[in-house]
């Protein structure tokens, strides 16, 4: 899923304060799972904004509303569109995709992001999410025991660890696992360590975002 974190309150409040009536729009998919922008978090932020505006004597009316997905046109129903039109601006609790989708849909409204979108990740434990995929467009994790060096090595090294791997930790931070120690250990468990002798050639980054914004077309399902 896409993992995001809420922006500092002051940053959101500064944007909201430029308007009299804002719609806080939550998203019911990824950011609900990572507890950043779902219905619950939308409610909490709406209350904070109302409280702060009252305390500071700012004339601000906050409406809250959450839709199933902000990255899909079908969920922007009539109710949502009406609420948007009735507001001076929208504060999206969706990821960066949701913010842009919303902005495209309502070109006469300014849409502010309430979240910082971080990465594609997994839930490690309650309240902890971690990056697992860099979306490079050409998956090669099978060569590395199912562990991605592009996303999980700080230097995206494809041919083994740098000199900074010590006791299973990455040199950038003792809290970060060395991806290459994990790759080595896993390949050893699989009895495939020998495969790491193979020199991985230069990666074709044209499938990555480096090739420009990407689009996937699945012709057999297009209307």
């Amino acid at each position: 899923m896409i993992v995001a974190e809420r922006k500092p309150f002051d940053e959101i409040f500064a944007n909201a304060g430029k308007h009299h009536k804002v719609l806080l729009l939550g998203c019911g998919t990824c950011v609900t799972v990572c507890m950043a922008g779902g219905q619950k978090e939308t409610g909490v932020l709406a209350s904070q904004l109302r409280l702060a505006s009252r305390e500071k004597g700012v004339d601000l009316e906050v409406t809250e509303h959450t839709i199933t997905r902000q990255c899909d046109a079908e969920f922007f129903d009539d109710t949502t569109s009406r609420l948007v039109e009735e507001s001076d601006a929208v504060i999206s609790m969706g990821c960066g995709v949701g913010v842009q989708f919303c902005s495209d849909r309502y070109p006469n409204k300014t849409v502010y992001p309430a979240l910082n979108t971080e990465f594609f990740g997994a839930t490690l434990e309650q309240g902890v999410w971690t990056e697992r995929c860099a979306g490079c467009g050409q998956c090669i994790v099978d060569k590395f025991g199912g562990i991605c060096p592009v996303a999980r090595c700080s230097k995206s090294l494809l041919n083994g660890p740098c000199g900074g791997s010590a006791d299973g930790r990455c040199e950038i931070n003792p809290d970060v696992d060395c991806a290459w120690q994990k790759i080595y250990d896993h390949m050893e468990t699989l009895g495939r360590v020998d495969e790491l002798e193979e020199i991985q050639p230069l990666k074709d980054w044209s499938h990555n975002r480096d090739g420009g914004p990407r689009t996937v077309r699945k012709e057999d399902v297009r209307l």
Binding site: P161, C162, W180, Y184, L196
Partner: peptide, 10 residues
């Protein structure tokens, strides 16, 4: 560096 056997592989 670690993993030690990999130092020679490198």
């Amino acid at each position: 560096g670690d993993p030690f056997p990999f130092c020679v592989t490198r």
